[in-house]
Write a protein that binds this DNA or RNA. Structure first.
Lengths: 283, 283
DNA sequence: ACAAAAGTGTTAGCTGTACACCCATGG
DNA sequence: CCATGGGTGTACAGCTAACACTTTTGT
C-alpha cells in the first residue's frame, strides 16, 4: 500500500487523515560522490562542525524538500556541493534507503542514498558556510559520521558490480577519452590490473559502448603512441559482461590482490563486504 | 549528510531543531510478494476499499512505525498479510525507494519497496478487515493503484536479474526440492525454457548452491522417474553466472519469446523495460 | 507398451586468457 | 635508441549449447 493501510490503520483509510498523527520522519538524501583523480578513487566529503560527530567527515546530503523527489533532491545537493553548473548529465544512481531508527541520535531520519559518478574533479564548492567540503582518497579514510562508512562501502560495491555489466565506466571519463583511460577506471575501482589488448577488444566488440571520434583525433597522456579518442556510446548495458579477474575461485579465498597497480580495494572502514546489500554482484 | 546539513540549513545544524519545521513525510513500505503456484508467477495483492483507487488492486504495505527500520516494517507487514508465523527465513530484498511528490494524492508519501520471495503460497490472511488479499497471476493483472505497476515491474526485473548470479531461486522452493522444481523457477520467472541436462550440471557444479538430501529420498511430481531431493546450500552467489538464453543478440530485438512453456514474461502493465532502474542486470 | 521426466554422455563452436609482436612517440 | 603505452595477431583452455541416449516411473 502506499498510505493508510497498515496493521492498525488497515481498512479505515480515511480521506483526509491527520498528517501529524505519527512521529515525524525526516527524509534526507546522502550522496557518495566518486571521481578519479590522479588514478585513484576519491570521494567528496564534508567536515561536520557540530555534534554529533563534530569534526568527522561525512557524506554530503540534505533534506528532501516538500515538492521534490529524492532524485531531484540528490541532484540539487550534488550541484550545490560540487559547484557544477549542469549536473543533469551526470550519472546518479539510487543505492538503497537506510532507515535504522537510531542512525541519527537526534531524531528519526530516513535517508535515501545515491552514488554519483563524476568525470573530472572540480575543486569542491567550499561554500561560504562553515562545513568544508573536500575530495579525499577512498583508500585513506578514517571512520565517517553516522552510518556513512557502510553507505560508502555499499556505493563502492555497487559501482564495482555495475562496471561488469553496464557502461557506466564512461561516466568517470571526460567527453572524449582514450581506451587506456577507460581501462584505468576499471583497474582503479576494482583494484586489479587488466590485460590492455583484451580489454580493448571487449570494449570495441560491444556495439554501443564507445564510438570513435571520427576526426583522426589523438591525444597523449605522456610517453607512448598517441591513442585514438572515443566518446561514450548510447548503450547502457554490456553484453557479454566484462567480468572481474580473480573471479572463479569458488571456495573461501580472501581478497588476495595480485594487482600491481592499486594496492587493494580496501574500503575505508569497510563494513562487512556487504553480501547482504541489495545489489552488488560479488564475483 | 544525515540530517541538518542541506542547502538552506547548512552550518546551522542545531542540536534540538524543530522536528515539525518541515511538511511531514509519511514513510511506508510496499511489498511485491512473489510466489509460484501451479507453475506460474503470482503476486500478493490487496483490493482497495477507498479512494483514491478504490476497487483497484495494490501491493500490500503500510507505515514504518517510529521504532522500526523499513526492513522490520516490511517483515512485519509480510507476516500480517500472509499469515505466516515465521517470516524470519524468507528472502526479503530492498528494491528502491519511490518518492515522487505526487505519487499519493493525499499527502507526501515516501515508500521503500521490497521484493519478497515465498516458497509455497499459503492462502492470504484475508484478515477480518475490509481489504481482501489474494494471490493473482502476474501475467493477468490490470493496472494497479498508485505507482505499483512500476514497483511490481521493477521487482520482477530485479528477481529475474538476481537469478542469474545469485542463489535466490531456492527461496521459491520448499525446504526440499527437486532440480526440476528449481529449473521451473528459472523458466517461470524468465519465461524461457532451459535445457534440463545443462541446467542440472550448472547447478551441481556450483559448490554451495544445493546439497543433496543424503537419505535416498525421492519424490514424484507425477509421471516420470523419481527425482533426487536437494536442500538449499549455503552459497548465495553463483559462479559462473547462469545467464538467460535469448541473450547475446546484441542489436535491437523485441522480446521474441521462443519459449514453449510460458507465453511471455509480459509484466502487468509493464512500465518501460526499466533499463533505468537502479539494478536489473539485463541480458 | 508408451509417455514423461530424471539423469548421463558426447561433441562442435565459441569466448576468455595469455602472451608474442609491431607501432609511434618522448626523452 | 630505449622506455612506454597503443594497438594487432594468435593459440590454447574451458565453457556453453545442442542433442543422443539410458533409466525409472505412471497409466
Amino acid at each position: 500500500m502506499t498510505a493508510p493501510v497498515n496493521g492498525s490503520a488497515r481498512g479505515r483509510a480515511p480521506e483526509g487523515y491527520d498528517k501529524y498523527a505519527f512521529e515525524p520522519f525526516a527524509v534526507t538524501v546522502d550522496l557518495a560522490v566518486l571521481t578519479l583523480r590522479a588514478g585513484t578513487l576519491h570521494v567528496l566529503l564534508v567536515e561536520r562542525g557540530h555534534e554529533p560527530y563534530a569534526g568527522r567527515w561525512a557524506l554530503p546530503g540534505g533534506f528532501v524538500l516538500p515538492d521534490e523527489s529524492a532524485e531531484r533532491a540528490a541532484r540539487r545537493e550534488l550541484a550545490e556541493e560540487t559547484g557544477l553548473s549542469d549536473v543533469s548529465g551526470l550519472h546518479l544512481e539510487q543505492l538503497r534507503t537506510y532507515s535504522e531508527p537510531d542512525r541519527d541520535p537526534r531524531m528519526r531520519v530516513v535517508s535515501v542514498a545515491f552514488a554519483a559518478l563524476l568525470p573530472h574533479a572540480p575543486e569542491p564548492h567550499g561554500g561560504g558556510d562553515a562545513a568544508q567540503a573536500q575530495w579525499l582518497r577512498y583508500n585513506a579514510l578514517g571512520p565517517l559520521a553516522f552510518d556513512h562508512d557502510r553507505i560508502l562501502a555499499d556505493a563502492h560495491d555497487r559501482v564495482g558490480a555495475k562496471l561488469e555489466y553496464s557502461c557506466i565506466a564512461t561516466a568517470f571519463c571526460p567527453p572524449e577519452f582514450t581506451l587506456g583511460e577507460l581501462r584505468q577506471v576499471y583497474e582503479t575501482v576494482w583494484g586489479t590490473a587488466l590485460d590492455p589488448p583484451n580489454f580493448r577488444r571487449k570494449v570495441l566488440a560491444t556495439p554501443g559502448f564507445v564510438e570513435p571520434v571520427p576526426g583522426a583525433a589523438r591525444l597523449t597522456g605522456g610517453r607512448g603512441k598517441p591513442a585514438a579518442l572515443y566518446r561514450a556510446g548510447t548503450a547502457d548495458t554490456l553484453h557479454p559482461p566484462l567480468l572481474r579477474p580473480t573471479t572463479s575461485v569458488s571456495p573461501a579465498s580472501p581478497p588476495s590482490s595480485p594487482s600491481p597497480s592499486s594496492p587493494t580495494p580496501s574500503s575505508p572502514s569497510q563494513s562487512p563486504p556487504s553480501p547482504s546489500s541489495p545489489e552488488g554482484r560479488p564475483a
